[in-house]
Design a protein around this nucleic acid. Structure first.
Lengths: 305, 305
DNA sequence: CATGATCTCTGACTAAAGTCAGCGAATGGA
DNA sequence: TCCATTCGCTGACTTTAGTCAGAGATCATG
């Protein structure tokens, strides 16, 4: 442990130094770091104040003042939320957007960040450079994966309902003939409460970014349903973590066989199930939206073939 | 380029976040970050004010004030340099040392750093954890390597003389019969100035941490001498970088064959020369301190066998 | 439609971080 | 020996970062 932490320790000190150098270079643009961070975190696509406050850990009063200052510099505009599809948006919430000058500043900050990285890479050989970039990507991937937290929740909780609603909206958009949650398997969620089932949410930075449910269909048989990952969190192994959690819960509940169905357009999902040791089987239900049916025996390890 | 920098960018933002979390946890010990950083950077072995000022980028007045505050808390003592071996030390310079209370505080900060790392690792599987640690070690190693800078200097410059003096001290301590710089090859340094030779220093954070020299002994033949790495910078590839630089300079100067001699106790050096493509040859000089002689043809690639 | 909660904003603060000019002692070369 | 330089220190300052209480608008709920 000491040994391993020792290694982390060196890494911590090293990156603290690099971050120090980065922030120093930001300061050279003649703007306090708080404002620079705000521009940087808003990005070109804009952001809600809420999100900025959480991500940067700012007091709401302080944030407000920083925004006024950036507004006075002509770098941002603050506006109410746009109403999406008749949904009357919460008119208390506000959204920051970079003006074109603001986007130019953001680009300048991005350039500084690039330059620091480049100056760091310049003295390495091509081979070493590739290894460094690969190692950095690996660290990034794994730390992001470590930031995912899986928790069992009630399928009726507010966060769960938001995830399910987003899931159904996506199905309606992607399925060839649309999707009606009342057909298929309407009230499956109600069977996803202990002890006969579970519903889990995946969280990143206390934001729900994915879900999945398990219900018992027979003594030793369970079914996985409602597997979904928020678009902004894809490619980080969220669904895999959700699936593993459900499998562990199933094992604890004495379930040996897991089944699931899926639509033909959800090719990423099918690929993941195969990777995780699920094998295609014959139709076992009459879900009108399903085209493929999978099964896995939890006793056997999940080596993909 | 954009693509690659894009990856760095994500990494930068990620570590900025982690560093933010780390500093927040430091603040929980109820001491301003500036003081905490100072304790952290002083480490158990103490440090010169100069070094602290450079590493942390502090104004000398500000540093002084921070030190007074830590002194008042009983965590550090500030004292003059100790005179080493009759060398009259510069009595303006001062050195910080942690008291036993200070070391306890340092340990507490180290623990916080460990805990953050552990909480980060906790959600990963054993396999992933190992990959993360390996990737972090790789990033650390390569960034450290990238921080090494090699420059051609005069062998009479102050920094060069300091390195050579340290080198000779080390030889005197390690060689079985001691070492007298006046025997062997006394004034070799004088031949290490362009165009007939070169002397290079390796720098980390503008501190010289290693040296090496090249002199021409015949039309197409050169000799490598005075290869040394400071103890605190070993294991980071400093000597390898110095050697590569000298080889490149030799090539530019039309030298095809490089030779060198070494003492039997310098086993790390011998291993490095072999790794870098040098082959042992018969004695080519009468250096009384040499037991092994090596040679490499620069036309051939340096694959070790 | 009353009530409590939430969201942003303002004013009045405090603490921390950092800058600048200059002093006295020590040093290293001409 | 003199002179410019370096090192650490002090006092007087500014800027940045962050906190706290409360106001006004909006929202969710019974």
């Amino acid at each position: 442990m000491r040994n391993r932490s020792g290694r982390c320790d060196g890494f911590n000190r090293l990156v603290t130094q690099r971050v120090g150098a980065l922030e120093e270079s930001y300061l050279r643009r003649g703007r306090p770091l708080g404002e620079a961070r705000l521009i940087f975190e808003t990005r070109a696509e804009g952001a809600e104040l809420r999100a900025l406050r959480n991500r940067l850990g700012l007091d709401s009063g302080y944030l407000s003042r920083l925004l006024r200052s950036l507004e006075a510099q002509g770098l941002i505009t603050v506006e109410g939320l746009v109403t999406v599809e008749g949904d009357s948006a919460d008119r208390r919430r506000r959204r920051v957007r970079l003006t074109s000058e603001g986007r130019a500043e953001l680009a300048a900050y991005d350039r500084l960040s690039d330059e620091l990285a480049a100056s760091m890479l310049a003295r390495l050989s091509g081979h070493e450079r590739e290894r460094l970039l690969a190692a950095m990507a690996e660290v990034e991937r794994l730390i992001r994966a470590a930031a995912i937290e899986i928790r069992v929740v009630s399928p009726n909780s507010a966060a769960a309902r938001r995830c399910l609603a987003a899931y159904f909206r996506e199905l309606a958009a992607r399925f060839e003939g649309g999707f009606n949650p009342n057909e298929g398997d309407a009230a499956a969620e109600q069977e996803m409460t202990p002890p006969n089932g579970f519903f889990v949410l995946a969280w990143i930075d206390s934001r729900p970014v994915g879900c999945g449910g398990l219900r018992r269909v027979d003594k030793g048989v369970g079914e996985i349903k409602r597997m979904w990952t928020a678009p902004e969190a894809r490619g980080q192994g969220v669904a895999r973590r959700v699936l593993h959690e459900l499998e562990a819960l199933a094992r604890d509940a004495g379930i040996e066989t897991l089944r699931l169905d899926t639509n033909r357009v959800l090719v990423e999902a099918q690929a993941m199930y195969r990777r995780e040791g699920y094998r295609e089987i014959v139709r076992y239900n009459d879900n009108p939206y399903a085209h493929h049916w999978f099964e896995r025996n939890l006793e056997r390890p999940a080596d993909p073939t």
